[in-house]
């Protein structure tokens, strides 16, 4: 288990420029295991977020909060090289993702991109002078969804909406739910279709080396827009369950409505820092009104990821 975490870290830093990679490779494995984010900014110190706090990285691969102590400073050229690596030297292939502000790596890590936007007709068509990359390393924590599955699916598969603030562990929980159900946790091998619009749940099924280490019975619709992906899954894969991350648009709620009419269960997540906020969002409110979900799971704060604060029965 420990090795899997480190592998994810090592796989992720493999995309960075050689010297940054070397510095991060020599960091204490315990810190690597707990690293959530790596921030590289042009002409600024290298920062990693671990144990829910930001730390400077020093030239000797140690971390700390002392800003005068031998900080490792990132050059513009290092940012450029890292960006090229992240894009696999194929900016055209990732243009849409770049315009949306992030690229998802093959192991599911998400690289946020900051630079100067080039706009046309009020729409971003490119980002130039890349100044910062923020790499979020995904956590694959096994059995983290045990409690949630026990509390919500003791009588079989049910439709869930998992709500929480950013960093509260929605995606981590969702991944473990998919893994456990696909392995027959509920006593039956359900057909699961995962609509992974941003490629951050599992990435490409064929390419994701990390995911391929496990036996799974689910299909990943990688980078499909959620409404289209849901309809294609419904028509072609005969799913028992459709899973998607971060719903909220009108097209998505329309697609969910169509799915409900066909009797397929759905598990989705939504951004919401508290219970009240759910009812403020018109599309989520509509889904609750039409009883699209049987249960709503409210997660705790981002200080305690994956903690279930409340389960609301609809």
């Amino acid at each position: 288990m420990l090795n899997n975490f480190i592998n994810n870290f090592i796989e992720t830093i493999d995309y960075l420029e050689e010297n940054i990679k070397l510095i991060l490779k020599n960091i204490d494995p315990e810190i690597q295991r707990n690293t959530q984010e790596i921030r590289i900014r042009a002409n600024r110190p290298l920062i990693i977020k671990c144990f829910f706090k930001n730390y400077y990285v020093y030239n000797n691969s140690q971390i700390g909060l002392d800003k005068n102590n031998n900080l490792y400073i990132i050059s513009e050229d290092q940012i450029k090289k890292s960006f090229e690596n992240v894009c696999e030297y194929s900016v055209y292939a990732y243009q849409e993702e770049i315009n949306n502000g992030f690229i998802t790596l093959q192991n599911g890590s998400r690289v946020g991109i900051v630079g100067t936007a080039v706009s046309k007709d009020k729409k971003i068509i490119n980002i130039k002078n890349i100044s910062c990359l923020n790499i979020r390393i995904p956590k694959n924590i096994f059995n983290v969804a045990d409690e949630l599955i026990t509390k919500t699916m003791s009588k079989g598969l049910s439709s869930l909406l998992i709500c929480g603030a950013p960093g509260s562990g929605k995606t981590t929980l969702l991944k473990d739910i998919i893994r456990q159900i696909s392995l027959g946790r509920l006593g039956y091998l359900y057909n699961i279709s995962v609509i992974d619009e941003r490629g951050e749940l599992f990435g490409n099924q064929a390419k994701n080396k990390f995911q391929n280490k496990f036996e799974n019975n689910f299909d990943i619709f990688d980078r499909y827009p959620k409404p289209t992906g849901m309809m294609i899954a419904l028509r072609t894969m005969a799913p028992d369950l459709i899973v998607c991350d971060e719903i909220g648009s009108k097209q998505e709620t329309d697609a969910i409505e169509d799915i409900l009419n066909s009797g397929v269960k759905i598990i989705a997540t939504a951004h919401s820092s508290n219970e009240q906020e759910i009812y403020i969002k018109p599309q989520i409110k509509r889904l609750i009104e039409i009883r699209a979900f049987e249960k709503i799971v409210i997660l705790g704060s981002n200080k305690k990821p994956c903690e279930i604060k409340k389960i609301i029965l609809i």
């Binding site: 090229e84 030297y89 055209y92 243009q95 490119n126």
Partner: peptide
């Protein structure tokens, strides 16, 4: 090669 958008390429 590879360093810009589809249109520019």
């Amino acid at each position: 090669l590879g360093s810009s958008s589809v249109e520019e390429q």
